[in-house]
Design a binder for these strands. Structure first.
Lengths: 140, 140
DNA sequence: CATACTTATCCACAATTACCCACTATGTTT
DNA sequence: AAACATAGTGGGTAATTGTGGATAAGTATG
């Protein structure tokens, strides 16, 4: 299970180290693609396959579904971890998520998200205050 | 069952000793994450799994639910107790709860909370006087 | 075909973290 | 009161992790 927040860097060669705590669970191969709210998502293969299945079941007749499928699938890339546990982030994904040097790598149970650090900090600042309210409402 | 209040310290290496009375019940592994009212929560694995299950049932398409899941899961960390019963508190959690050197470790039946000592003292001062009222209101 | 350019593999350093042991204070037992 | 046990704190050393760079292999382009 992926949990936690790690601040890492993308170097000039577009390499990003996966937090060591995630590596065992992630395996040697992963899939990276566009995520919601301008972040990237990293899936272990097993989870990626589930995503694809779900996409396949969307009605391709609908404009929304069609474009969504296109975005997710066309954005996806096989990312093999190198010997030191790093993956390569291609330019178009870097741009999509406005990634600079410093990024936040976030564990979300069955997937991993990658955010530009500043955006992540802002998102947290905006969201943290309402955690209490929502916790109360949801009972967690 | 976790009960009681203990004043402990976080050392320069970010280690926090779990009160010995809690260790048997907590086990070797725990999960720490953001809590309500700017404290941290420590769960035994069995309780944490319940939390995750409940989070997984939230619709990830909704903004509120999505951000809530992000806050709870990204804040969480696997905390393995070392041979002397200490856990490591990462910086971002220390910051979230404004933890300095002295902290209060509070047993709350199925979970443990960690407060900055001063904040805890203030909270108590503010809350203690109304215990009677609230008891009446809640019928306990 | 040669050249530039990107991509992969390997290695090296620095900082952090994990692991081990020592000290002290407090409380308990004889 | 002395001896002992336990708990909490602090520190030293070794291993791991994250990052940067060097070299080799592959790919595209003129």
């Amino acid at each position: 299970m992926f949990i936690g927040e790690y601040i890492h860097t993308i170097d000039v060669k577009k390499r990003l180290a996966i937090p060591s705590k995630f590596r065992k669970d992630l395996g040697k191969k992963a899939v990276v693609t566009r995520g919601i709210d301008n972040c990237l998502v990293v899936y272990p293969i097993r989870e990626w396959e589930k995503v694809v299945k779900r996409l396949e079941n969307l009605p391709s007749s609908q404009i929304d579904a069609r474009s969504h499928v296109r975005m997710i699938l066309s954005g996806a890339i096989d990312a093999e971890l190198d010997r030191l546990g790093r993956i390569l982030i291609p330019d178009y994904l870097k741009n999509y998520a406005s990634l600079k040097k410093n990024v936040a790598v976030i564990g979300l149970s069955n997937k991993i998200e990658v955010w530009d650090e500043l955006k992540w900090q802002e998102y947290k600042k905006k969201t943290e205050p309402s955690v209490a309210d929502r916790s109360e409402k949801l009972g967690i």
